[in-house]
Structures are given as structure tokens and as C-alpha cells.
Amino acid sequence: MSKNSSHSELGPPSALERRVSTWRRTLGIVLALCSIAYGWAVITAPIDSMQGIIQKILYVHPPLAYGAYLGFVITGIAGMIFLGRGREDMDRLAIASAEVGVIFCTLMLITGPIWARGTWGVWWSWDARLTVTLLLWFVYLAYLLLRSFSGPSPRTARFAAIYGVLGLVLIPLNYYVIEIFGSRSMHPENLQGGSLGDGMGLPFLLGNITLGLAFLYLVFLRWEVESQRTAAGEGSSAR
């Protein structure tokens, strides 16, 4: 524990948080440009001869998954730093990335079944990857519920951090379950550039970049809001 930490160093916003705002603004410009290119690429991409128009969900769905998992990993790691070092800015980052992660995960869980209905003929299958993702979604919903049920306090922050770490541990554990019991899997393996048809590589790549940037942008924005909210004395919240 640091002995002579001045208020400005510990209190909101932290030195790191003050820089976040600058990063976010720069990111916003890049994001806007990427979005235009991405939108254009998706619209002009050829329509899949087998799956039809519904195939275009694949330009959205996998990047959402990366964002969701990234959000949950950041939540866990930020929680660990908060526990170990007592850095409250990391607690606020954990809130931000959990919320954005849940949004990405929700969108992934919505786009997935739409594509599945068109391709597999069913909305949902208890496929290993789907099951695990659904469970993870519940873990982080529980994380947010825990935060909002117990109100802003150091104790809530600590509880949430521990739960975030547990959630982080659950990701490999759940995948270990799949590996052990064999993935009776319909879900396509992660797409490699080569497995995409002609003209599908570019929108796919742009999708990853754009949604990746969007993820960062939203996390930074939410982080900033949380930091300003605490600075204004409203206390941290997880609504």
C-alpha cells in the first residue's frame, strides 16, 4: 500500500483515466472512418450461393464474440489488480468492460440463432460452444446483478472483483469440459481467411477491426463516465 499517495493520484480520475479521454476521442475518428468502409464492404460483398443473404451475419457475429470474451477477460484481470493493489480506477474499468462485454455477448447470442435458423433450421442447439457462451453470459449478468444489488461500496467492489476472477477461471474450465466430453459441435470452427469465399475476406477483416475498435471505444466511454460519476460524488454504480 502506498504511503504518500496524494489525493490526485488515488482519487478519481486517476492519471490513467485522464488519458483515456484523449484516446477515446482519437479512437472515435478512426472508428467512424472504419464504420463507413465496413458498411460499404458488407453491402457490396457477394451473396453466398448456399446460405443466401443470412450469411452476412458472419461479418458481425464472430467479432462480437471476440469482444465479449475480451470484455470478460479484462473484467477479471482488472479485478485482480484492484484486489492486489487497491486501485479503484481498475474497479471502474472492470465495470465498464463487464457491461460492454455483456452487450457484445447479448448481440452475439441474438445474431447466432438468426443465422442458425437460416442455416441449421433451428434457433438454438445445445452445441458445446453455444452452451459455454450462454453460461458465460449468465456469469457476467450475475456480476452486474451483484454490483447493483449491493450498492456502491468498497465491499461491493471487492465482491465483484472476486466474482470476476471466478468468471475468468470459468472460461478455460468450461472449454476443458467441452474438450473432455467431445465437442458434439455444429458450430463452425473459427474462420480462417482462406475458408471464406471470394470477396468475403475484406468485409470479414473490416468487421473484426471495426467492432474491435467499437469495443474499445465503448469501454473507454463507459470508463470515463464511471470515473466522472465517482468524481462528482455519486459513487460508482453498475446500472
Partner: peptide, 10 residues
């Protein structure tokens, strides 16, 4: 010595 207890701005 210099005991401070603070959470957020409280």
C-alpha cells in the same frame, strides 16, 4: 499515521 479511508469520492 495518516489513516485515510475513502471509497470513490466518499
Amino acid at each position: 499515521r495518516g489513516i485515510e479511508k475513502r471509497y470513490a469520492s466518499v
